[in-house]
């Protein structure tokens, strides 16, 4: 098979394409909605930060004279439109790793997961952490911006797994609001005080046959890197059971791993 055969084959593969349904106006309306939603997220985060400051600052300063006149409220005659939090952060510095560096880092994270699993997953036995790699098992390329692995374990006689995905700064193009797009109601912000934003995403609950549950927690870090830890109520590497047991991990357990600096690129 020559290179020309490949060219012809690829060209012919799209010869039967269905009609294109493109409505630029609808597409731009969708994009505008997303921009507005990002702005709302920014407002929410800013409000949360102000609330935290309002609660913590007086406690840090100590008791104050309740009879002292209160400072007048700060007023302003103009309002500034909030800037949507960009993702990746504007000052992100992409890190490029060689395949050898990625293999070494993967080995470190694999050992860490093996060590920490009994703590994060009390009662888990037969923990097996797969080597971190790319899309193909065991395959890592120079400059690859991510690593993934699965940690398989047994709990109460059932086999489960956690998926662990780590992304270098700038390598995860979707921001906190975008990972929630498939099901915005399933998203929950767990914590914003651990060096970034932690989101729990109820990816899929009770769908399929048998009904399966997948729970993902993303840690969006300030340096632009991302760690996602995904809990399954079955073992994705094994044959799907006739019925699935209750979800064995909570979002908080997954978050403990996602925010741990031992995981990351």
């Amino acid at each position: 098979m020559t290179e020309q055969d490949v060219r012809d084959g690829l060209a012919n593969a799209v010869a039967g394409e269905p009609p294109l349904r493109l409505d630029p106006d609808a597409l731009m309306a969708t994009a505008r909605r997303q921009v507005r939603r990002r702005a709302l997220v920014a407002v929410s985060l800013a409000t949360a930060a102000v609330a935290v400051a309002a609660v913590t600052l007086p406690a840090a300063i100590g008791p104050r004279d309740d009879l002292a006149p209160a400072a007048p409220p700060v007023t302003t005659s103009t309002t500034t439109a909030p800037t949507p939090p960009p993702w990746p952060p504007p000052d992100v510095e992409p890190r490029v790793h060689t395949a050898a560096e990625l293999y070494r880092r993967g080995d470190q994270m694999r050992a860490f997961l093996g060590d920490v699993a009994p703590t994060v997953l009390p009662g888990a036995t037969d923990v097996e952490v797969a080597p971190f790699a790319g899309e193909a098992a065991g395959d890592v390329d120079d400059g690859q911006g991510y690593l993934t692995s699965f940690a398989h374990y047994t709990l109460d006689g059932n086999r489960f797994a956690l998926g662990v995905n780590v992304y270098a700064p700038g390598a995860h193009s979707e921001g906190p609001d975008e990972v929630c797009v498939p099901d915005p109601d399933g998203c929950e912000t767990l914590d914003t005080e651990r060096g970034g934003q932690v989101l729990a995403v109820d990816v899929r609950t009770g769908r399929g046959d048998p009904p399966i549950t997948i729970l993902a927690v993303y840690h969006f870090r300030r340096d632009g890197s991302v760690v996602s830890v995904v809990g399954y109520d079955y073992d994705p590497a094994a044959t799907l059971p006739m019925s699935t047991p209750p979800m064995p991990v909570t979002a908080e357990q997954l978050a403990r791993l996602a925010v741990d600096p031992a995981l990351g690129l």
Binding site: M1, E3, D5, V6, R7, D8, G9, L10, A11, N12, A13, A15, G134, E135, A136, D139, D141
Partner: peptide
């Protein structure tokens, strides 16, 4: 025949190899 086999074969490749071939030859 060609269309089916080349594309079916392509879909068995790891994603970045697949992308490299599409970008170079398509």
């Amino acid at each position: 025949w060609v269309r089916d086999l080349v594309h079916r074969g392509l879909l068995t490749l790891p994603p970045r190899q697949r992308a490299a071939l599409v970008l170079r030859y398509f």
